[in-house]
Nucleic acid binder design. Structure first.
Lengths: 351, 351
DNA sequence: CTGTTAGCGCATTCAG
DNA sequence: CTGAATGCGCTAACAG
């Protein structure tokens, strides 16, 4: 078979490399590299030759080799408790979008709120040399976690969590949100108000309780500790504790569900027991969802901009990474997104 | 200052490498590599020395270099339409979990159902040399997409999509699900039944219509084309079309919302117009959600195991990747997960 | 303006 | 059983 002008498109898929392109174009690998990296110091004619050769060979740059050489992976690692929670799904989605617009890939991992597992994930991501970390730790006081975050040179941005001395963070103003929720119920005449939310080991747990306490304090009212359920953010916990709360001799007349998933548990408990909202109990959800909007009655809820959280976190990360430890402000940057309360029909005047 | 036995933990963070560990342990890099890779042909004593040196230096293997050398990234790329949709969030979550258990990292990207964007994402992931692809294309007939999938050597598993000749896939039996939904409404005496779902360019759109048609055919009933709305899976489309449907001179007496997000749109439309379920219209949702369960009345829904979808897809991928083009069955493997209908209180007998 | 070359950090021959 | 040497694919000096 006589040799024709152009070779077949490389061997049966023996991973075509830059060298193949160079040979095909009759130039050196350095020149191919320059064309790829848009170095302007390449003559137009040569550039075209190279581009043609790239097209002919079907070569695609090997990002692994590029990372090896440049010590930058253009990859962000993201560790969240649970992407199945619409809250984190929304944050991950908008963060991923913003990051990709800037050329970063997005490695996602779920910790399930398990600190041990979380350590493994962080280690894994660091070994993969991610350029930055988007992170919502399960326990802000875990010394292993703080050790890693402090020890690494990889820029880290926290979402809905804080390590104020160490990291940038993007959080929502849960304190004010719950404060408004409690104020609202108090203004309706409620005095026995329950708060069910997560532990103080993460920021939302602390801030929600704080907002709750502020509302009572400024109203000159005492908090009944029997109505505080501060142990978990899960649906199951919400279900169980609402159930118990409503079985009290003196049940609360108002309940604040301090967690995105928790309204589900509360509504399940109400359905089971035939509790009517708002006749039997007034409810405020923290975290607005389809369910809050479309339940009967629609549930008053505290909301904030999740899409902005992800985006802001991504922007913060990009700034840090781009600054490369250089021009970046040495002090951690903290952004706090506002919350607002959406009044619906789940809260009645205390009779 | 006299030299003490152990050096300071490397320079102020000059990325410690295997070479540093080797020097510290007084062995060669080859030996360090063997220890790390658990090569048994290393004397216990040396192994311990090396491990001590690793601990002392704080060295972490550089996964980028490993990938470069081994031509395997232990990374799976995942392109889904929208991680904000709980359906895909659940799939991504369980897939990620299974993959990580097998040592794979998980790069996630949202296509937003945009085919152009999708091409870029695929290209990006391929350049990053992912070991496999978990993918839900926006349009099964897009020739650019099929070209890439066919052309690459990277194993690809589709979820809720099919390219039966090219790829493994994991899908749910939407045809049967909608068939059951329609059968149910028909058995209740309904004849004017609307179906609102997505386009036939992706499997769920095709299969849902097929199940719908089967039910009518086997009941010997005609389909009124005016009640078919087959153009999109979005909340906005659901809202708009339900609105229009209920404004018809002869509105449907039953509606099947053929898409996970679509019940939200339907309930919004009902709320706005004061349409009562099931007095004014009976409703079946395809895709079970908190909203379907907890709405008033609770909505009859078709459901399937999302967690299994993600897991099965991950397993299929792992098998392909591990087989490395070798022992894997050459024919694509197809798994179809069953659906079931959950009867609730949203469907009434046609008066 | 383009070619040549030296590594990036590691796994893996091949010697010894 | 361990050390030395090679190269994965690419970028960035440096020469010319």
């Amino acid at each position: 078979m006589p040799k024709t002008g152009s070779k077949p498109p490389a061997a049966p898929h023996a991973a075509v490399t830059m060298r193949d392109v160079a040979r095909e174009a009759g130039v050196s690998v350095g020149t191919v590299s320059r064309v790829v990296n848009k170095n302007p110091a390449v003559k137009a004619r040569i550039r075209e030759q190279v581009q043609a050769a790239i097209a002919r060979t079907g070569w695609q740059p090997n990002a692994v080799a590029q990372s090896m050489r440049t010590a930058s992976t253009k990859t962000i690692g993201c560790v969240l408790p649970d992407i199945g929670n619409p809250l984190f799904a929304a944050i991950a989605k908008s963060a991923e979008e913003e990051l990709r617009r800037h050329g970063y890939a997005f490695i996602l991992a779920n910790s399930n709120g398990d600190a041990d597992h979380e350590m493994e994930l962080l280690t894994l991501l660091l070994q993969r040399r991610v350029d930055g970390l988007l992170f919502a730790p399960s326990d802000e006081y875990d010394p292993r976690m703080t050790g890693i975050v402090r020890g690494t040179r990889v820029p880290t941005v926290l979402v809905e969590r804080e390590l104020p001395e160490e990291c940038d963070h993007v959080v929502s103003d849960q304190r004010n949100g719950v404060r408004q929720a409690a104020d609202h119920l108090i203004s309706l005449g409620h005095r026995r108000i329950a708060l069910v939310t997560g532990e103080p080991k993460i920021r939302p747990g602390r801030e929600r309780y704080r907002g709750f306490a502020e509302a009572f304090e400024s109203a000159g009212l005492p908090i009944d500790p029997a109505l505080l359920r501060l142990e978990s953010l899960t649906v199951a916990y919400a279900y169980q504790e609402v159930h118990r709360l409503m079985a009290l001799k003196e049940p609360p007349t108002g309940i604040i569900m301090g967690g995105n998933m928790m309204l589900t548990g509360a509504l399940r408990a109400f359905a089971l027991k035939g509790v009517r909202v708002p006749q039997d109990v007034s409810v405020v959800a923290v975290g607005d969802t389809d369910l809050a909007e479309l339940a009967s009655p629609p549930i008053t809820a505290v909301r904030w901009n999740l899409e902005a959280m992800g985006r802001e976190a991504a922007v913060a990360l990009i700034n840090r990474v781009a600054a490369g430890g250089a021009a970046a402000p040495p002090e951690p940057q903290h952004v706090i997104l506002p919350t607002e309360i959406v009044l619906r029909r789940s809260c009645a005047i205390k009779s």
